[in-house]
Amino acid sequence: PDPFFVLATQNPIEYEGTYPLPEAQLDRFLMQLSLGYPTPEQEVLLLAAPSNREALANVKPILDNQTFEALKQLVPTIHVEQTILDYIVRLGNQTREDQRIRLGISPRGNQFCLLAAKAYALLGGRSYVIPDDVLAVLPAVYRHRLLFFENLTTKQKDAYIAVIVKKVQPPMRRS
């Protein structure tokens, strides 16, 4: 059905019976989100919560399909200045030139970064993208695409993405 999308989960410890996806397949996922562990307070609530079946029965949608489709149609209309496009490309190029990175961001990764930044701007109530939109989505878009020479945790990858961001000057605001 339309919309169709895939949510996949990965346990970083137990790979038995599964194989890591090749880079070309990973590149087709828009984002990789990392939830981490709950806080102690959240974990207490989790333990006190009803069973999974009961909880699932109580899940309420936050968007109906019509609203989702309307938002989806708006994303391509979000304005992007040339300076933002240049910024996304410069960030991607920085990953391709970095000596610690074996495989940097692909052109598809840059396309997904732009798409995610547009959606983020829309959800922020704006009809245009700002550098902060790009930075907000960058870790989730880059995290699974960057291949380092060493095996890094999600936190280490995010820290290194922050280093890359600091090396690239964001566009300046027009007066």
Score class of each variant (00 low, 15 high):
N110R: 11
R96S: 05
D64F: 05
A119W: 06
H79S: 15
I101S: 00
G125I: 10
D133P: 08
H79A: 09
I130T: 07
P131I: 03
P76R: 10
K72D: 07
A116E: 01
V80T: 07
D133N: 05
I105T: 01
T95N: 00
K72Y: 13
V59I: 08
Y128P: 05
T95E: 03
N65Y: 13
V75Y: 06
T83W: 09
Y120W: 14
N93Y: 14
I62R: 08
L115A: 12
L56I: 07
D64W: 10
L114P: 03
E81I: 11
S127H: 09
G92E: 10
I105R: 02
F112R: 00
A57E: 10
G104T: 00
R102V: 01
A117M: 02
Y87R: 08
G92C: 08
L56G: 11
K118G: 02
R90I: 05
I84S: 03
G92A: 13
L63H: 08
A121T: 08
I84E: 07
V129R: 04
H79K: 12
Q94W: 15
I130R: 02
E69I: 11
G92V: 03
L74V: 08
G124H: 14
L123F: 13
I62E: 15
Y128R: 06
D98F: 00
I62Y: 05
G124K: 06
N58D: 14
K72C: 11
